[in-house]
Design a protein around this nucleic acid. Structure first.
Lengths: 203, 203
DNA sequence: ACCTGAACACCGTTCAAGT
DNA sequence: ACCTGAACACCGTTCAAGT
């Protein structure tokens, strides 16, 4: 497991193969199959171990703040190890040891006057937004780090036809700077305030 | 290209390999490399071709509606071929022929009184939300279709400790029904209304 | 120009055999 | 119980050779 984490941190999770992991752990590839059912099982255990390390701070009393803090905690935990998202996106936020954050969001929403259905909807929207943010930024980062392909996006945007795409053409050269800013907090706040019953925002 | 599309629709994009594609197209695997630089190049061409087929309806005059309609169009186009998201998430919405939707969102936001910076931020939030929604739902669908693993998520939720996770435990049996509903429109509206200057919502 | 077979350097996983 | 080598059925890609 430690070898696996080392390998991911050094070379990225796409390079984590059973064979490389075996080499890193000084064992035969086949040996791994006596400790893990298969590769998915290994990844799942890696995920659960990580979830257990997430600190569990006291959440604020005000329910709206509680929702925001819990969501930000999920976000920051994922941002620290973004490859998780690609493995995880499938099952909502499965893994026993991470469920308390989901509970915190749903409880906060209910305390703000949501019905249970509305609370689940709010959680799901927050989860979609968070997953998307992490994923897009992680991939952008990966491409940036890869000196290979010189960023097709900037090229496409640079050639934008000012007649058909006036705003994009005007913004083309500022685009890289604009998209590198962190807008998660504003987006999250907009989403939460839009989905909580009125009168519970900004309190 | 037609063979590639056929293969993806039949077996899923994870099964699209150069070798299988070659077989499908009655050619040697190596032949493909005279038509595409590599596999990424093939995928990129597949993407661009698809973007060209997206219908281009007249957008409403009211700027807020324009933002919502353009975002929903992006969403629905991706939902129809969700594997695209995994290839695409990297570069924002690259590909010349899809940029008009980005332009529509940014123009709508500016017409609502946003600064260009705010308009780009709004577009990015919408993009994150949309990517997350498609990705999570596509993966959930894939798992559901795979009779193999019997859904770890429901199991984990079913065992939720009512003392520590009261709301989740109470919602456990309704969870599958709750998460299968389509909440994209509400989430999108909340996000957009929260990020547009006040006074421009619901007009 | 277009296509090909042989080859290289990889994958995940199984299985019978060893200690 | 734990580990292993040999093997199977795959990958993407290159390259010299054919038409």
């Amino acid at each position: 497991m430690t070898a696996a984490r080392r390998l991911i941190d050094r070379d990225g999770w796409r390079k984590l193969t059973m064979r490389r992991l075996a080499t890193e752990a000084d064992a035969a590839p086949t040996t791994l199959y006596h400790h893990f059912r298969d590769k998915d099982d290994l990844l799942a255990q890696l995920l659960n171990d990580y979830a257990d390390t997430i600190p569990r701070p006291d959440l604020p009393d005000a329910p709206r703040e509680r929702v925001l803090v819990a969501a930000t905690l999920i976000h920051d935990s994922l941002a620290a190890w973004p490859w998780i998202v690609e493995v995880l996106a499938a099952d909502d936020l499965t893994g026993e040891s991470a469920l308390w954050m989901v509970e915190a969001i749903i409880a906060g929403a209910i305390d703000c006057g949501c019905t249970p259905e509305e609370a689940v909807d709010l959680y799901r929207s927050v989860w979609y937004f968070t997953v998307g943010e992490i994923l897009v930024r992680a991939n952008a980062e990966r491409r940036r780090a890869d000196p290979q392909r010189p960023n097709r996006r900037d090229a496409v945007l640079g050639e934008a036809d000012p007649a058909r795409l006036p705003h994009l053409a005007a913004l083309a050269d500022r685009w890289p700077a604009l998209v590198s800013r962190n807008t998660y907090p504003q987006g999250l706040r907009a989403l939460v305030d839009g989905l909580l019953p009125h009168g519970h925002t900004e309190e």
